[in-house]
Amino acid sequence: MAATRVTIWHNPRCSNSRGALQLLRERGIEPVVVDYLSEPPDRATLLQVAADSGLGLRGLVRDKEALFGELGLAGAGEDALLAAMLAHPLLINRPVVITARGTRLCRPPETVLELLD
C-alpha cells in the first residue's frame, strides 16, 4: 500500500480529519495532503469524488454548518448544492480519503481502515 498514492482532503482544525491522517501515518502511509479549504476541488473533481464515494453531493455536504442553513440548502437540488460547495468549500465534508481501493468520507476516522485492508 505504501507505493500506492493516497490522498486526503484535510482540515487540520477537524478532529476527524486529524485522526484519519494519524491512522494513515501510523501505518506507514504518507498521503498527499490537500487543504481543500485553500485548494478547493474543481467541479469535475468534486463530482467524481461524490460519485466514487457513493454518497453523492448530498452525502458530502456539511449540512450542520451554519452556512448551509444561511444559504437555504436544505431542499436544494444537486446543481445548487454543487454551486454552493464550489463557492464555499467549508460546506464540503471531511476528511475524504482517496485510494486505489476506493474513496470514503472517513467519519469516524477509523473508516480509513476499510481502504487499507
Rank of each mutant, 00 (worst) to 15 (best):
residue 76 A to W: 08
residue 27 R to N: 13
residue 23 L to Y: 06
residue 27 R to F: 07
residue 117 D to I: 03
residue 113 L to W: 01
residue 22 Q to K: 14
residue 39 E to D: 14
residue 14 C to K: 14
residue 3 A to D: 15
residue 23 L to H: 02
residue 63 D to G: 10
residue 112 V to T: 03
residue 101 R to P: 00
residue 7 T to G: 06
residue 62 R to T: 04
residue 103 T to R: 01
residue 81 L to D: 05
residue 79 D to I: 03
residue 5 R to S: 13
residue 83 A to N: 04
residue 90 L to Y: 04
residue 78 E to Q: 12
residue 103 T to G: 01
residue 19 G to A: 10
residue 49 V to P: 00
residue 89 P to A: 10
residue 27 R to T: 08
residue 63 D to A: 11
residue 77 G to I: 01
residue 31 P to C: 01
residue 81 L to V: 09
residue 68 F to K: 02
residue 90 L to Q: 15
residue 101 R to E: 14
residue 39 E to F: 08
residue 33 V to K: 05
residue 20 A to N: 10
residue 112 V to E: 01
residue 45 T to N: 02
residue 64 K to S: 13
residue 108 P to H: 03
residue 88 H to E: 14
residue 110 E to Y: 01
residue 67 L to C: 09
residue 32 V to Q: 15
residue 4 T to D: 15
residue 37 L to Y: 06
residue 22 Q to N: 10
residue 115 L to H: 07
residue 80 A to Q: 13
residue 94 R to A: 12
residue 52 D to N: 07
residue 3 A to M: 14
residue 78 E to N: 08
residue 17 S to K: 04
residue 27 R to K: 14
residue 113 L to P: 03
residue 26 E to G: 08
residue 44 A to C: 04
residue 85 M to S: 10
residue 112 V to C: 02
residue 112 V to R: 01
residue 15 S to G: 10
residue 74 A to Y: 01
residue 86 L to M: 11
residue 104 R to M: 00
residue 38 S to L: 03
residue 82 L to C: 09
residue 97 V to E: 06
residue 65 E to K: 05
residue 30 E to L: 06
residue 69 G to E: 10
residue 2 A to Q: 14
residue 106 C to Q: 00
residue 61 V to K: 04
residue 15 S to V: 04
residue 103 T to Q: 03
residue 7 T to A: 08
residue 28 G to E: 10
residue 46 L to H: 09
residue 4 T to I: 10
residue 84 A to C: 09
residue 21 L to E: 12
residue 21 L to T: 12
residue 95 P to N: 06
residue 53 S to H: 01
residue 32 V to H: 12
residue 105 L to E: 02
residue 6 V to G: 12
residue 28 G to K: 08
residue 104 R to G: 00
residue 8 I to W: 01
residue 47 L to R: 15
residue 37 L to K: 11
residue 21 L to Y: 12
residue 107 R to N: 06
residue 13 R to F: 05
residue 49 V to R: 15
residue 69 G to R: 12
residue 70 E to G: 04
residue 57 L to M: 09
residue 4 T to P: 08
residue 107 R to H: 06
residue 42 D to V: 09
residue 10 H to R: 10
residue 7 T to W: 01
residue 9 W to E: 08
residue 87 A to C: 06
residue 18 R to N: 05
residue 108 P to G: 03
residue 26 E to I: 07
residue 9 W to V: 07
residue 99 T to S: 14
residue 40 P to G: 07
residue 107 R to K: 11
residue 86 L to G: 13
residue 32 V to W: 05
residue 15 S to P: 04
residue 54 G to H: 03
residue 57 L to E: 03
residue 38 S to Q: 14
residue 94 R to H: 11
residue 86 L to N: 13
residue 62 R to M: 07
residue 29 I to C: 12
residue 56 G to L: 03
residue 96 V to W: 05
residue 60 L to Y: 02
residue 50 A to P: 11
residue 89 P to Q: 13
residue 52 D to K: 06
residue 95 P to R: 06
residue 22 Q to L: 13
residue 10 H to D: 12
residue 55 L to V: 04
residue 31 P to H: 00
